[in-house]
Design a protein around this nucleic acid. Structure first.
Length: 408
DNA sequence: AATGTGAGCAACCGCAACCTC
DNA sequence: AGAGGTTGCGGTTGCTCACAT
């Protein structure tokens, strides 16, 4: 009964590694590679369990590890990715070169979590504390999950919307080419568009909900590179997925969001507000109040964070207050004018962060001197733009993520 | 100087996913 | 297909050190 131990623990050393042990491990791996971790300790002459060796190597001895203080950019990346991914440290670590998941996890738990807490933001839900307190009976984790899922759902819907838009464009061009009589019926994606545009319920039930992890990121990736459209054409996948706008059955969509419920359900529940729209193309809109937390307490030695709270609040608000509405058009103004969101996506994630920060002069020194037009008060349009940039930056992140990334 | 306390971090534990046969 | 082994991951523990009392 019970699990078999990962290795024979009799006589195996535990606890901190000595320099001699490090040297042995290092020398062995440099010469032979780690091979089977289970067999490594014996071969390397170490009285350690393979698991311990692996951990020591991956978290400490590996040559491509950067140690020391986290930069502001790294902190911001962690915070935003945590808002997006939750406690999935390995996924976060793939976007922080030379940082290990363990280090990021520790840094989060010892620094960032506390800072967010001091700033009045629940580090679990990334919501302002007051909101988090609403879920009084220890449901913050659930709320966090729902929040994350809501974010994914929003991203997914936006991806779907993009597909619809592209399908629509395609169908229109097709119409112009071959006439208007049978365009929608001749293309599954176009018919999908028609279905969505007419707010029809899909014939097939929606596919099972993607977990808010890889598949969600796949959606983002597909969204970003259009691959999903290609892969979905003719498959009816769009129809079933986009069907959320009409007949939402995806659990990720039908969850009873305790806090975001009104917005989320308004956004994704077809019967709720699609009626007001000329067509049913989904729109994802970030609605957030400009953060103003100047009174928040700062830790000593956190000058970097002076004013950073505003950007934190900005993105936090964007995350937790964004609403998705089925509007006539979802396309961001920039997309409309440029006809492509690649221009936005090309703006790096870091730049985005810094750009956001540039609202605060005290933070403008670290790179990304490009300034937005914000006056610091972040009016609705600016805020909207910032949050779109935020998500686009995430997409950029997704798109540019290393091929070995377990997530992307 | 001795003791208490909290922060920071390395390492461990156990679960789950993945791989191999 | 499924059983057993391996690896990855996230939560947690416990040690060390700095600072306060």
């Amino acid at each position: 009964m019970g699990r078999s131990p990962c290795c024979d623990k009799v006589g195996l050393k535990k606890g901190p590694w000595t320099p001699e042990e490090d040297q042995k491990l290092l020398a062995y791996i440099e010469e032979h590679g780690h091979g089977s971790w289970r067999a490594l300790p014996a071969k390397a002459g170490l009285q350690r369990c393979g698991k311990s060796c692996r951990l020591r190597w991956t978290n400490y001895l590996r040559p491509d590890i950067k140690r020391g203080k986290f930069s502001l950019q790294e902190e911001q990346t962690i915070i935003q990715l945590h808002a997006l991914l939750g406690n999935r440290w390995s996924a976060i670590a793939t976007h922080l070169p030379k940082r290990t998941d363990n280090e990021i996890k520790n840094y989060w738990n010892t620094h960032l979590k506390k800072r967010l807490t001091k700033m009045g933001i629940d580090p679990v839900t990334h919501k302002p504390k007051n909101d988090a307190l609403l879920s009084s009976d220890g449901q913050s984790k659930t709320a966090a999950n729902l929040s994350h899922m809501a974010q994914w759902e929003s991203a997914r819907l936006e991806a779907e919307a993009r597909l619809v838009r592209e399908s629509k464009l395609r169908s229109h061009s097709l119409q112009q080419q071959i006439g208007s009589s049978s365009t929608f019926a001749s293309s599954s994606s176009a018919s999908t568009s028609a279905s969505v545009l007419n707010n029809n319920k899909p014939e097939a039930p929606p596919p099972p909900p993607p977990p808010p992890s890889r598949s969600s990121l796949d959606v983002l990736k597909a969204w970003n590179n259009g691959g999903w459209l290609k892969s979905s054409e003719g498959s009816g996948a769009i129809a079933s997925t986009v069907g959320v706008s009409g007949d939402l059955e995806s659990p990720t969509s039908t969850l009873s969001f305790s806090e975001n419920a009104p917005q989320i359900m308004n956004a994704i529940g077809g019967e709720n507000n699609n009626n007001n729209n000329d067509n049913a193309m989904p729109m994802i809109e970030f609605v957030g109040s400009s953060g103003n937390s100047s009174s928040l307490v700062k830790e000593e030695g956190e000058q970097e964070w002076k004013g950073y709270d505003s950007s934190i609040n900005t993105f936090s608000s964007g995350l937790h207050e964004f609403t998705m509405a089925m509007e006539g058009t979802w396309v961001h103004e920039t997309l409309r004018t440029n006809g492509s969101h690649d221009d936005i996506v090309e703006e790096g994630f870091t730049n985005l962060l810094l750009k956001t920060n540039s609202e605060d002069p005290s933070l403008s020194s670290e790179g990304g001197g490009e300034s937005n037009n914000g006056d610091g008060s972040a009016g609705h349009s600016d805020f909207y733009e910032d949050n779109n940039n935020y998500w686009n930056s995430i997409l950029n992140l997704v798109n540019s993520s290393p091929s070995h990334s377990p997530m992307f």
